[in-house]
């Protein structure tokens, strides 16, 4: 028997004994805390309202905009094209089926950031891919798109261009005649329902 082979056999068996002493893995298929922390640190999970607007206007088929506020708030006002998955039903079977569509970019929003970010973390732990948060939520949507602030005279060309884009997008969503009526109705969270049918709601299930 060749001594080198005995050495090799010894090495692989020692490695095998090492495997034997590895701790049992968490049966739940969840992301490890370290990975989750690293993912939370990564700002690329945030998308701006302008990005979302742009993709909505272009009717990007890979965009799934998810309103995670309660149904009543969703009905009172929502971003056109969004679907509603209230955060407390995030784990329901139908919601999971919806979120499991690998080819879609799932973008959460709530009124501000906190709830949508919580939903994001839950989904991240469940190892869903391509999930994002629309930064600033409905509040920022309002201040940037619906009530876009007119830049001052001295503003850069870029800022002006952005403003034009926001105005155009707003008209695209709400039509110029209705525009005047929206803000009040929404701020008071009652009255005129300007919500269009949630056209973005794809028939559930990827295949």
């Amino acid at each position: 028997m060749n001594k080198r082979y005995l050495l090799l056999a010894g090495i692989i068996i020692a490695l095998g004994v090492g495997i034997l002493f590895m701790p049992a893995k968490d049966a739940a298929k969840q992301t490890q805390p370290e990975l989750l922390l690293a993912a939370i640190d990564d700002p690329s999970r945030f998308l701006s309202t302008d990005d979302i607007t742009d993709r909505l206007v272009k009717k990007d088929p890979a965009l799934m905009l998810i309103d995670i506020r309660p149904v009543a708030q969703f009905k009172a006002f929502s971003i056109p094209g969004a679907i509603n998955i209230p955060v407390d039903s995030l784990l329901s079977l139908s919601a999971q089926e919806m979120l499991n569509q690998k080819e879609m970019d799932k973008v959460f929003y709530s009124n501000a950031d906190v709830t949508s970010d919580q939903a994001w973390i839950i989904c991240k732990r469940m190892k869903l891919l391509r999930i994002y948060v629309m930064q600033g939520g409905v509040n920022r949507w309002f201040s940037t798109i619906v009530k876009a602030e007119k830049p001052t005279e001295t503003a850069t060309a870029k800022a002006l261009e952005l403003y034009q884009f926001r105005i155009a997008a707003c008209q695209h969503f709400y039509g110029s005649s209705e525009m005047a009526a929206i803000p009040n109705a929404v701020v008071e969270k009652k009255g005129v329902t300007v919500v269009k049918k949630a056209s973005g709601a794809k028939s559930g299930g990827g295949c």
Binding site: A9, I12, L15, I19, L20, A24
Partner: peptide, 18 residues
């Protein structure tokens, strides 16, 4: 357990080589 099976597989492989 997966680790036990992996260890046994290694031992079985070495035994087969012999």
């Amino acid at each position: 357990r997966d680790t036990v099976f992996a260890f046994l597989l290694i031992v079985a492989a070495v035994a087969m080589f012999y």
